[in-house]
Design a binder for these strands. Structure first.
Lengths: 202, 202
DNA sequence: GTCTATATGGCGATAGAC
DNA sequence: GTCTATCGCCATATAGAC
């Protein structure tokens, strides 16, 4: 491999990722990516074959990277309540670092309902098994309320993720400044964990 | 106005709405709409000026229609707990009747962050004021726990709406059949209301 | 109001020289 | 690996006849 190959490849990847996240896949053209990455248009196809393949690669990269950390928390050996606290906190921190990730993933999910079905990164993203077993075991031991684990898990995800999908609405309707919004989201960490844990305790 | 005018207009509107919801605005061309509505391409621009204007109209129509009912519940004079129960139930029923609405609204929100800012239908959609006052009053009367009303409201919305945005993920990962998914969502009505009310009671 | 024809430009992708 | 040039198609929108 030549010297310039990695740098060119990386430049395309970085630029395309940025634009896909910001503008949405279907509102970014390959010409725009090439121009902003300052590379020749043909190199896009030389390295990635097609825009669609490029998208798949970027999607995989983005998700698998983030999903692993979260998956590890869900599968760790800590107590159920600590698990909920740590998961909520880590997930929110990750999304604060990647504010456009939620809209991007949801839009790709809407765009390609099938293509993602088997994708490993997506499997990690929505990975209920171990957590649901933990929840079930605690309920059977009488330590927490009986719940449908799937309902609980989906609820936890909803509470964590959805506010990022409607960020603009929240900011606009509350007349938040940027700092106030971040503070609002930070405060959700305790709020969510509290709500979930209180519910289990009853 | 000629006899055919309304029927043509309505045909375009209905077809465009269906396609926008299913495929996403940017993956539907005006030619496709015209063909499926069985009207001449030029009539699109004759009636709606441009695809973008057509989108705005459709968005407004879809949202304002649904938002009014929900807004009325939030502003009614029933008890706080009843309000939460009725709102959750009505919202979920509405989304079950319009399964693609969530993805559509989120995608338009992502596509046009600004254009929607002042839109009345959107204001109704995210309409916190009266509900937050109610929540605050009950807390001050010592009937429920002290909470940040905005956090509570956003949480309620999240619990209700988000599962519709990740429907494909839920169905796929749980190997749900269509009926099982609908049942899962129906069960959320009580689950969500329980969780929210239990939390307030503590 | 409805049609045909077309303007104008963008898109993704590739052939082939270097 | 990188470039220029271009193919073939589709997009949105409009002019003008009827």
């Amino acid at each position: 491999m030549g010297k310039k190959s990695t740098s060119t490849r990386e430049k395309i990847l970085a630029t395309a990722t940025e634009l896909f996240l910001k503008k949405g896949v279907d509102r970014v053209g390959v010409r725009e990516i090439a121009a902003k990455a300052d590379i020749n248009l043909s190199l896009m196809n030389y390295y990635f074959k097609s825009k669609e393949k490029l998208l798949e690669l970027i999607f995989e990269n983005l998700i698998s990277e983030k999903a692993t950390v979260l998956k590890n928390i869900l599968e760790s050996d800590i107590s159920l309540f600590d698990k909920i606290k740590q998961y909520t906190s880590a997930y929110i921190d990750m999304l604060l670092d990647n504010p456009l990730l939620v809209s991007f993933v949801l839009s790709v999910l809407h765009r390609n309902p099938d293509k993602l079905k088997g994708m490993t990164s997506v499997v990690n993203l929505y990975n209920t098994e171990k957590f649901c077993m933990h929840l079930k075991a605690e309920a059977e031991a009488g330590n927490v309320r009986e719940v449908t684990p799937e309902q609980f898990y989906v609820s936890m995800l909803s509470l964590i993720i959805f506010p990022f999908a409607i960020k603009d609405l929240i900011v606009d309707r509350n007349k938040f400044k940027k700092k106030e919004y971040v503070e609002f989201i930070r405060n959700r960490k305790d709020f969510i964990a509290d709500m979930l844990i209180q519910y289990l305790k009853v």
